[in-house]
Every structure is written in C-alpha cells, then in structure tokens.
Design a protein around this nucleic acid. Structure first.
Lengths: 336, 336
DNA sequence: TATGTTTGCGCAAACGTTTGTGCAAAATTA
DNA sequence: TAATTTTGCACAAACGTTTGCGCAAACATA
C-alpha cells in the first residue's frame, strides 16, 4: 500500500530522495543522515515494501525465473523444483511454475506467457518433439536451459542424467545375471532422452551378442498406464522376457502394478530394474533395483547456470550428471 | 521485444490506437477496419506479446497467484500444486511457487515478496504457530486462503480435510479390530490440523472406554525421521502398542522403515494406518490401510475460491473435504 | 568581497500499458 | 451552402520505480 510517492508526500521530500535512501544509496548521493534516518524510520513504520512490478518495468529485470515441467506430481520433477526454488530464492529470485501436463500446446502457450512476464530466465523439461517455440526465447537473449529432456541439435543447453550410461549399466547388470530376453518399456520416442536410454539398452545387448527382439521394446509414454499395459502385453507373449527395464518411475510403477495383478512375483517370474529411484522401492518385497538419478543436482545446476548467465552473460554448457545403479533384490540370477 | 510503441512507430499511428485494436476494442472506439487489419497483421508478423509487467503496473492486477507450501517434494502438496496450476492457468493466472521448507522465517520473508510482487491472491499451507505475518495481506484486501494447515481463530478461510473425522474413523477401525494400545505418531502440535487429528484419535479411544496412554502419543514433526525414530522408541517400550496411527505420509514412511529395520512384520507385530494415501502403499506386502485425503479437490477448491473472491469480492467460506478410510491389509484382528 | 567547492536534494524522463478526453475531417442533414 | 453529426484517430496522464543531471545553499579559500 505505501509507495515511495506516499512516503515522500508524508515527509515532504522528493520521491527520488526516498528511493535513494531506501536503496542504500544515501551516502553516495550525499543525503544527510538526518533525512536518511527519518525516511528509514518512517518506511519501517508504515511497512514499506517496494513494488516489484514497477521495479521490474523500470529495470527490465524481474528477478523471476520460469520453470516448466511436464508433471509436478512426479517426484522426480517435484524434487527438482524444490531445489530450484531453494537456490533461486537465496538470490532473491521467484519461481513461476507451469505444469505443462505433457501437452505441447500448453507448453507453447505458456512459453509466450513467460515471455510476457519478462522472466529473467527459463528452465524447461520440454515435452513433445518440437523446440521451435523456444527459439523466440533465445532470440530475445533470455537465458534458457533444458532439464531432463533435451534436444541437442537445438543448440539449447541442458542438464540431464547420464542416460546412455545409466541404461547401459542397468541392462548389463541384467545380462550379467544371465538374462537374454530383456524387455525395455519405453516412453515417447520423440525425445533424445528416450533415444539415449534406448541406445544404452541396445548397446549393452550388442556387447553381449544378444540379438534384439523387437517385440520386447514397447511403450510410448511416460505414464503408469503405459507401464501397466505394456507389461501385460509383454508378459503374455509366447516367449516372455525374463527381465524388464522400465524407463522411468511412472512406467516402473505400472510394471509393478501389472506384475502384482497378474499374480506373478519378482524376481522369480521376471526381474526388474527401474530408471529413477523412489524411497518406497526399498520398502517393497522384494526391494527394487534402480538407476538413481540425481534430480536435486540437476535442479541446482540448472538454476546456477541460469543465474550466472544472467549476471555474467556466460554461455551455459550442457552437463550430464552421473546416475547410480542401486542393486537391490529384484534381479534374479538365471543360468542360461 | 516489439512493444506497442514500436508497432505504432512502424505503422505511423498512435500507441493508443494500437492498444485498442489489440485489445479488441477497435469497434468500440470506432477504429476503421482498414487500420485494424493492418495493425493485427503487423502485430502477428512481428510476434507481438503484451508486456504483462507493464500491464500489471497499469492495471494494479497481475494475473498472478502465490502458492506457498512447506515441501513441494511431498506428493500431497505436489498433487495439490498441480491442480492449483491447472485451474489457475485456465483463467490465465500464473503461479508463483514458494517452498517454505517448514521454516517460518522463510515464510515471513516470502510473504513480503509476494506482496511486493502484487499477487492477486495467495494460497498458503502455513508452517509454525503464528499467522500474524498474514494480517498485512488481509489488510490490503488480497484474497488469502489456507490449505491443509490452518488457524481458525485467525479468521482466515481454509480448505482442509475432515481431519477430526479421518483420525476418528481410523482409530475406531483399529479399535474395532481389538486394539487397545494404539500409538499416535504426530506432527508438530503447533497447528490446529494436528490438534484436530489428535482429538479424533482421543475421542475414538474415549468412546471405546480406553484409557489414554501418554507414552503412546509421540512425535513432533511431519518428517520421515520423526516417524522413524518415534516408531523405534514406541516399539521398544515395555508395553509396546499393538497398532500405530501415523499422522501423515512422511511419518508413515518413517514407520514402515523402522518396522522393517527392526525386523518386524506388519500386521503381525504391529498394525498400521497412515493418514494420507500413496500409490505405493497398495503395492507393499502387506498393503497398507490409509486415510485418503483428496488433495486434488483441496487445490481445486482453493483456487476457485480465490478466483471468485478476486472477481466478485465474495468472501471465501472455509471447507472441510471428506476423507476416505481405505482398508487394506495392515490391520490385524486381535482378540482381547 | 569575490570566487570556487562541497553538500543536500529536487526535476524529469523512461520503462510499456490503458483509457478519458478532445479535435479534425468526413459524412449527413437541413 | 451551412449546420450538425459521425467517424477516426491522437494526446496525455497514470501506475511506481530508478537515475542522470542540475540547481541552490552553505561553506571554504583567496
């Protein structure tokens, strides 16, 4: 409610003087201690808080960061968001959150909104297979970084996991345990992230001289439902897989649900590794082996990169953050 | 990048005309179709997007809603946030997200920031035991609603679960199964939410003529660690409880972890009901009975209430959303 | 006393919008 | 043709900041 103008009026001095004092530029502008104190005291008294909207207009800097994720209810993104907010707020930045709901159209619309809101930077886990709508952002020199999913040929920097290695190691672990029919339940193949994980899976098979069985590579979405249905399909094949690699946590949950519903047990009927860890997975019986992603770190690095680009006009360099193969009890050794 | 001013200059007409046309007020202001079309076409061409900061300053309305939660990584709040964003974005509102991290000081600071950002409304799950810092918000007539946690004597409206009933029903279910030593593992007693759930627990005991055992009411925080440690304590009592009621999902997870680490099994060694459901709980062995809260609904109602207060200057009325007791396999019948 | 320097602060523009008001030109009417 | 109405648009203020510049008063120096 109280504005600079109001304070100035009440105290019978000019707006500029009040502004300078409240911004600690009193000395520099040779404002007398007497006036400074009066203003400071009065501002405190009426509880003055600067209008950040006006400030933003004036400074063409809003201390605002956009964050767009496909699904904030997915713990992977929620944890990332938490860390992003944490590091941003330390530097007095606020987060504008958008949940694109895996919907490219909403993503496109909200990109425009973000531009309209003049965010100082944008962190996005893009959905779909197109990134053209992000070009405007870059054209306007707004710092932008992808997290988790990315398009390397877009030239837009990204922070993601070592997807290839993670999938490769997980698959290798299954192979090491004697599995040769390993099903990959995948997300939408539109994104490079998926392609990389798939490649890791394929290369591990290749290295072990295992022929690829096309019917074992299934799935089209990062969703519980996809995991559920794909698992049912694949387990009812004439020659079902002896192991499954689930490409993310939602798919993994779907797998678990399907296996339970089919009355099967892990790892006797089928072995399982899930990409992306979850606390509950170490509570299950058996506990589930996973590829743990460091989503905290991804979030932290993303903000820090954005903030340094804002301050120093540095270019962000993409990074792949190591994953960790957590071996629990969901993989059975089988002799070939 | 392109502004009204720029467009006006390029087209050699005045800013006001451009503004009116782009806001669909061309007819009303008797702007000729010719000019209107030129402007519309040109605006499209250069990809004009209004500067919402400038708009916000002018209109003293930012189409922005603040959302403060104690922990966005907690699925309860994440799901709520998802729904809040969904309903808000449909009405062209953006969400400014703050994760207070259960820290009152951060909450206080961020309340100020929200005011500075001139949010049109504020949705908060408050932490701590004080609400005085929210009074400024109300004084400035900014619509405010609490979610989940609340202070009824503050006069600030809230959307929460039927906490009393939920706890009462859960406790009664345990009693119905023959339990008389039921431990309540609680969160910080500073909030009315906790008090209500505790009251539900106590009243259920009372109704069954069971004497309250003080040593069975433990815990001081909504955290995994608290659930974990409290469970260990309580299960090592000389006369341990035969059942546990965990006051939220994080505590519940801690309980499960502790029980597992102690090498005990549910429900043989101890029965369990958790306040707040989680998909994984129906995957565990045994599956865990819960009090399901409708966090989607809470979020939805909160935004809708805020939005109608913004538009119609209606006062929000507090609501308690029903919970559902989901009976699974974690409660054993014992004969007294 | 005249000149120069420092001190203390105000003026005004600018950021991008919206909107009430006013004014000229064109069209209509008498 | 003159008076009146309608059409089409521009001017300017306002929202709350920040900041370059300038001006007056006070003080110091010569």
């Amino acid at each position: 409610m109280p504005t600079l103008k109001q304070i100035a009026k009440d105290l019978n001095i000019s707006v500029s003087t009040v502004s300078r004092i409240l911004n600690g530029k009193g000395k520099k502008s040779r404002i007398s201690n007497a006036t400074a104190e009066t203003v400071l005291k009065y501002a405190e008294e009426v509880g003055y808080a600067p209008n950040l909207i006006a400030k933003g207009l004036q400074a063409t800097q809003t201390f605002t960061l956009g964050l767009m994720v496909p699904n904030i209810a997915n713990p992977f993104f929620a944890i990332m968001a938490k860390n992003i907010e944490r590091w941003a707020s330390r530097e007095h930045y606020s987060i504008i959150l958008v949940d694109s709901g895996e919907d490219v159209e909403k993503e496109k619309i909200q990109v425009k909104t973000m531009m309209g809101r003049k965010v100082d930077g944008l962190i996005v886990a893009p959905v779909g297979d197109a990134y053209q709508h992000f070009n405007k952002i870059r054209k306007q020199k707004i710092p932008l970084v992808f997290v988790d999913r990315y398009f390397s040929d877009s030239g837009i920097p990204y922070m993601t996991s070592e997807n290839y290695k993670g999938a490769f190691n997980a698959t290798s672990e299954l192979i090491r345990n004697g599995h040769r029919r390993i099903s990959l339940i995948s997300g939408s193949p539109l994104n490079e992230l998926v392609q990389e994980r798939t490649k890791g899976y394929l290369d591990a098979l290749k290295q072990a001289n295992i022929e690829v069985a096309e019917e074992l590579i299934v799935g089209t979405a990062f969703s519980v439902q996809n995991g559920f249905e794909s698992t049912k399909c694949v387990l009812q094949l004439k020659k079902p897989p002896t192991a499954i690699l689930a490409m993310n946590n939602l798919i993994g949950f779907g797998v678990l649900k399907a296996v339970k519903e089919l009355g099967l047990t892990i790892p006797d009927a089928v072995s399982l590794i899930i990409f992306d860890d979850n606390p509950y997975l170490s509570l299950l019986n058996p506990t589930i082996s996973t590829v743990r992603q460091n989503s905290e770190k991804i979030g932290e690095l993303a903000v820090k990169a954005i903030l340094t680009e804002i301050k120093k006009d540095f270019n962000i360099t993409s990074m792949k953050i190591p994953t960790e193969l957590i071996i629990r009890e969901s993989v059975r050794y089988i002799s070939s």
